[in-house]
Every structure is written in C-alpha cells, then in structure tokens.
Nucleic acid binder design. Structure first.
Lengths: 324, 324
DNA sequence: TTTGACATGTCAATCGTTTGACATATGTTT
DNA sequence: AAACATATGTCAAACGATTGACATGTCAAA
C-alpha cells in the first residue's frame, strides 16, 4: 500500500505538503493540490487510519456487544446503531457475547486494547468494575449502576398496556412468560406491571420464568407446552418477546386452540417479524431506532467529553393486530 | 490509559523487558515476570493494539458488508461470521450497504483506510476494479469475476428440489417469486432450475421478478397480492426467500386459501424464522454456518498468503414442514 | 522599499509498541 | 579458565501520519 511518502515523491513535493492538502491547512496552490490529488489517485493511496488513530488517540470505533445478532431484536438494534454510527463517521465493532461471561469479558478487554471510543452494551453478565476505566459506555435496557448511562423504554408502561389489553378483552386466566428475573434487567419492570394489574383486577394468573436463552429456541416450545399442560384454562398470554409469542401461537395451533378466540396473545418489541407472522402479532412496540440514536449519541458525547444524561427512557406503544 | 512505559517504570525494569514478558521472547526470570504482570494489573494496562497494528501491518479486522443486518438471512450469517472470526482472534467491522452504491463504495474505502485483513462481501453493486487492491476479499453467493473467490451453496439444486417438490405434490400452476435477475447473483440459478423443471414437466407457471428490496417489506405483500389477482389458479409458490414465503402465507390466509390444501409454498434459506412461523415453512436449507466458516477461512488464508480455492459450493437440503 | 500574503520546504517530535544489535552482569558446566 | 546459558539493560529504528517551528522564496500592495 502506498504511503504519504510515495505520494509526495511522485508529486515531487514534501510530505508536509501532501499532509497539508489532505487536511486542508496552510497555504496550498490549486496547482499542487491537483497534482497531489492525481498522484493519490494514481497510486490508489488511502491514508492509513491506524497511524492517524495512534496519533489522535481516537479510533472512531464503537464497540457493540449483544447476546446474539441472530436474534431479531438485536439484529434490528444493530442495524440502527450502524446507521447512526455511519452518520458520525464511526465504525461498528460487533460482538456476540452469547451471554457467556468469559467471552464478554474477553471482548471488553479486546475493545479496550483497540481503544474504542465507547461501548454499547446490549448484554451484561459482569460485575461493574469491568466496565469502569472505559472511555465511553452506555447500556441498553440495563441499569448497571449510577455511573453508567443507559437508554431504555418504558417497560412498566409496556407491561401495563399488554396486561390491560388482555384483561379488557375479557381474559380470565393470564399467563406471563418472562426472562430470568435474577438478572437485573429493566425488562423486569414489565413483570412488575403485570403483577400489579392482575392483582388490581383480581385476575387469576401464572408467571413463567425462562432462562431467556436466546439461542436454544426449542426450549421456548417446551416451556409453552408445559404451560398449557399445567394450566389448560389459560386464555391470555403476555410474552416478553415476540419470538416467545410466536411459539405460543405455534403451540396453541398444535393444541387446536384458536387465536384469538380461545387464547389471546401479546408479544413484546414489535420486531419486523411480528408483522410477518400469521396471524399478525399484537405487541408492545419499543422505539428501537430512537433508542439506538440516543445510545450512539451518548457515546459521541462521552468521547467529546460533553455532559451526558445518565438515563433516557422512551415511550412504548401498543400495536393491536390479530392475536388479541 | 497506561502505556508500556508506565508499567516499566512501576516495575523498575526497562520497556524492553516488559515487552519481552508480553511477547514471551528472550530470557525472563519468574520473579520479574510476576512483578511485571502485577504492575500491569495494578495499572489496568492494556497493550495498545493500534500501535501494534501499525507496526505489524496487520489489523486483525475483518470487514463485513451486507445489505442489512436486520434481514434474518444476513443477521444469521453475521452471527456465524462473528463466531469464526472470534475463534481466529479477529474482530468484525460491520457495514450495512442498504444496497446503496455510494455507501458501499464509501465503506470499502473506509475499510481500506483501516487496513482490514479482508472483506467479506454479502452485497455488491459496484464495478470490479473497486474490489481490487484489497488484501483479502471473498464474496458471498456472488460471483464477481475469476479473481475474486466466493462461497455459495448449490442454488441450481435448491431450485430444482423446491420445484420438484411442488410438482410431485401435484401442483398444476406454479409461481416463482425471485429477486432482480439483472443483478449477477448466483441465486438466479434457482430460477434457471425452476424454468427447466417446469418446462420438462409441462407445468403452467409464472415468474415474478421483484426488486429484492430487502427493506420495504410492504412491497412484498403488494407483489403477492398482484400475483393472486392476476393468476387466481396458482396452487404452488416457490419463493426465493423465507421472508417472501411468509408474505405468501399471509396473503393466502387473507384470501381464504388454505395452506397446503389450496396453495403449497416453499421458501428458501431456512432462516430461524421459518420454523417459528405457523404453519412452519417448507424450505431449502443453505448451510449458512459452514458457508460463514469457509468465508472467514478464506480471508485468513489470504492474509497469510496461503493459496485459496477460488470457489466453494456447498450442498443444500430440502426441509419439508407444514406448507407443502 | 517595506510589509505582508501566499507557497512550499526542512526538521524533529509524537503516538505506543516491537525488535535487533550489542553490552554487561551472574551463574553453571566443562 | 574458558565457554555457555541466563537475565537484564541501553539504544535506535521502524510503522505512517500530523503538526509546530522556522526558513526561504515570490509577488503585489502600501
């Protein structure tokens, strides 16, 4: 690969001059500017960003850690983050933690070694101290401690809306399938809201806590099968993700229960999938794109040492489709 | 951030010594080794990979360009690529081209500037010369020219299997929905196979060419609606992706056609989605994970200047589920 | 004639790390 | 005593680019 020296040599000028045209500083005549540009073209010169990063102490790299990009929720999130990073002239370094603490820690260290401008955590299994000593960080729907900014949506309201919809539609016994409540996720607020609503209205209910293992989808089916085996009279299900909801629909169909006549189902997230499904899924929409925007913005601000809001919570929206 | 000098100063040794323990070269006593490690720990030292990359002329970065990670096919591909990159100690730089030639070109230049070890192209809209002058490159299901290695699956066989299944099940009029045939995609072999089979058996058929615009999913629905409006007697559909197939199912349901009794549907790819759908989709499975492995391996080989196979084609498999 | 804008050059330091060449010890074997 | 392995140090160059300081021009305006 050609270096700035090669360009200078070919154009018959000094490297300082080339650098000057490259960075638009000092005086440069139109003549040399053109000459330099044409030499860069001829040599297929691309300034070495690695050298620049070293000098500037800025990599323009944003690290993104998610449990698995193959999961629709995270793939859509990733897509939006990439979009806003590109707008900023930054690049996205992608990592799947598989919720494996070893891999996650490894990735965080790797990112520190690569001097990323910041990390967006869509996953976390580790203790707080690992996250400190990072230029920038923001978590996604996860509150780790007061010093780490996060963006999330109004999980409590989402849980309330979903539960209320099922109650209003006349459900008598409602199941709620959620993730592992031991993990300190903000998503657990949905379960809080579910509990509150269901008690307020005196509705019979059951809560199923899954391992939230994103990767072994067969497990979901087993959970749902068990649910209907143990509680044949369930006529409403509020699942904490659209994928789980899809499995509920699948199992119901196998069991011969009609949706929404016999069982009503509400998902969560409103991933693209939700609208492709037949029947189309009723769900609670998170403003994913806007959340991604705020996350990237937070990293940018931290990199530029501007002040950042420690927490951003965005509104959710109930999307009624065919499963209720 | 602490540098190797800080570590050396704290440990009371020279930077050369620290570098020696870091890279395991030369003689080092157990004593100093321990001392150096504990100082690194205390200072939270992480060797600056940027400086290393500059010296080694190797970034350990693999660039991945896809149309959009939000698309299930590409998100699964990305996930597998990330997996194998991690195994190699490489990192994945993710780019969505949105099939926008400007953005794609911009990204390729960016990757050259960042001296990636290679690019995996899951998308391509550009002329060949842009791809040359790259350390490593491999395309995914796309044959650009003889000098650019690619990995793909047996598209012709996939098309044949899907078409034959519909014929064998007794379909009289089969529709095939494919992408833009102007783009030089290997996926077009599926259409070739469809044409061949359908002629061989004298089956009535119709081919719908879409813009393959991954992002505007409403378009798919419109295409499918038009299909059934124009050809009410279609009783078999072979769609070139599972997502399109999902829309076929959706529209059929709206139109009151039963699946598989009235219309049989075969998708393509076997993305995770396909098995979540109700009814579960019959589809042609591409060995995505293995394809990802080969792509990453090809980049690694190119970076290490080993010889690479110019083309790798993997077998596909017909997965019969509930839509046929 | 002096001043100042314009144009380019030379030189050296800096970013953080690696590496080879070479020096200088202290031990341990022959 | 010579030879050698072990352990560490000093020094400098290299990777590719940026930048500030300063020099040296030319040319036009005051």
């Amino acid at each position: 690969m050609a270096t700035i020296h090669d360009v200078a040599a070919m154009a018959g000028v000094s490297v300082t001059t080339v650098s000057r045209v490259l960075n638009n500083r000092g005086y440069i005549s139109e003549d040399t500017r053109r000459k330099v540009y044409s030499c860069m073209e001829a040599l297929n010169y691309q300034p070495n960003e690695i050298a620049r990063s070293l000098l500037r102490k800025q990599s323009n790299l944003i690290g993104l850690i998610v449990p698995d990009v193959a999961h629709p929720f995270f793939s859509e999130l990733t897509s939006h983050i990439e979009y806003y990073a590109y707008e900023l002239g930054s690049k996205v370094l992608l990592c799947n933690s598989q919720l494996d603490p070893v891999k996650e820690r490894d990735y965080i260290d790797m990112m520190k070694r690569n001097r990323v401008d910041g990390i967006i955590m869509g996953s976390h299994t580790l203790e707080v101290d690992v996250y400190s000593n990072l230029k920038g960080i923001v978590t996604f729907d996860r509150q780790i401690d007061e010093h780490i900014p996060y963006v999330c949506s109004d999980n409590y309201e989402g849980g309330r809306l979903a539960t209320r919809l099922l109650i209003d539609k006349g459900c008598r016994k409602i199941a709620h399938i959620c993730g592992n409540l031991q993990l300190q996720l903000l998503a657990n607020r949905r379960t809080d809201a579910f509990r509150h609503e269901v008690h307020k209205h005196g509705i019979e209910h059951v809560i199923i806590e899954t391992d939230m293992n994103v990767f072994d989808q067969n497990q979901y089916e087993a959970y749902v099968n068990r649910l209907f085996a143990d509680h044949a009279d369930v006529d409403g299900v509020f699942a904490t993700s659209d994928i789980i909801a899809a499995f509920v629909v699948k199992v119901c169909r196998k069991l011969g229960r009609r949706i929404p006549e016999d069982v009503r189902v509400v998902g969560y997230d409103d991933v693209n999938n939700a609208s492709w499904f037949t029947p189309a899924l009723t769900t609670v929409r998170q403003p994913l794109k806007e959340m991604a925007r705020l996350a990237v913005e937070s990293i940018r601000k931290q990199a530029e040492e501007e002040a950042v809001e420690p927490a951003r919570m965005l509104p959710v929206e109930l999307i009624e489709r065919e499963t209720t």
